[in-house]
Design a protein around this nucleic acid. Sequence first.
DNA 1: CCTCGTTATGTACGCTCGTACACATGGGAT
DNA 2: ATCCCATGTGTACGAGCGTACATAACGAGG
Lengths: 197, 197
Amino acid sequence: MARRHDPERRQRLIDAAIRVVGQKGIEGLSHRTVAAEADVPLGSTTYHFATLDDLMVAALRQANEGFAKVVAAHPALSDPEADLPAELARVLGEWLGGDRTGVELEYELYLAALRRPALRPVAAEWAEGVGVLLAARTDPVTARALVAVIDGICLQVLLTDTPYDEEYAREVLTRLLPVPGTRDASGPGSLPPATAG
Amino acid sequence: MARRHDPERRQRLIDAAIRVVGQKGIEGLSHRTVAAEADVPLGSTTYHFATLDDLMVAALRQANEGFAKVVAAHPALSDPEADLPAELARVLGEWLGGDRTGVELEYELYLAALRRPALRPVAAEWAEGVGVLLAARTDPVTARALVAVIDGICLQVLLTDTPYDEEYAREVLTRLLPVPGTRDASGPGSLPPATAG
DNA sequence: CCTCGTTATGTACGCTCGTACACATGGGAT
DNA sequence: ATCCCATGTGTACGAGCGTACATAACGAGG
């Protein structure tokens, strides 16, 4: 009854969708659950997002900004003087250490692209976005490699209940840098006692 | 009518489940679709696998053997003399280059562990299995890193429609090896022209 | 041969889902 | 002030789902 003329309805639906995925997983995402979460009638969700894919694309696009924000909060990542692997490892630690819901959500939507072609471009945008950011500090090949290993590390943490090990991440990221840039390196020569599974 | 006393029913249901996931994705997996694919009545699937999780665990466990078989087919991976990164890159190429259905299926079930705790241990088994195999050639930390980057590379290929680049994979894997083992290295010093996004 | 428990089968119940569609409403253009 | 259409609302339909359960067939052990 009341809520006629709600100009932010669409945005609130996206927010609701993100909350739903965060709480029930992507399988729990439906027009109805989103409608309930946003406290709007069912018909409203189908009006603003004709198909579920539309809604997921919008949600994934917005969720992607989560990591971007964490990155943006660390200007050191763009500082050519800073220790890139150490900074990246720290950022990952923050991201994985905080409310894990956000990370799971982002990866869940990200991974959903495996079966949903509609999400594929958005997933690519994410990888490319992080890649571009990192390429500014290294080179395209290294950047892609860093993105790959970041994904891999996050998956290991999320999928196998292994706690995140920042020192391990730093070591692995360091190894990926092209050799000329031995950085200020305290010497990657020998392994840290680190944490092996 | 006919098929009373079918001693391999259970196994055929697992096979059918794998085919279903391969064709329709994990969301298409249901007691009914599996029953149809295996050409058995609905009640039969619920008899052998009370819950869908049971069925998925069995399917994931069997699917995991896919990569293991590819690995086993490359004894060079266990040969201390062989060039590990090159061999790994080649194996990945074979795996990703063949019938992609198998890879997608394996990753789909693997990634499903993100939201299904029941699958978590099986996913961990896989990572650990590959890890142990690689640890025999390097060390635990490096092995975990290799698994991470392998996952990351596969995800990049599967999620962003980027073709697999074996040379790139070889380079990245090489960098991950601990420095003392500069291997026979033709010199990781400079980047290949490679493929950058 | 007969009994009995494991295995197999068919059907039904209650639920959620995507989608369609008819109707209400209110703000901006005229 | 009026009209019109983008926006909002409620309800219904058909389909698929997990699950439960009563019943049938079979093979092993008596």
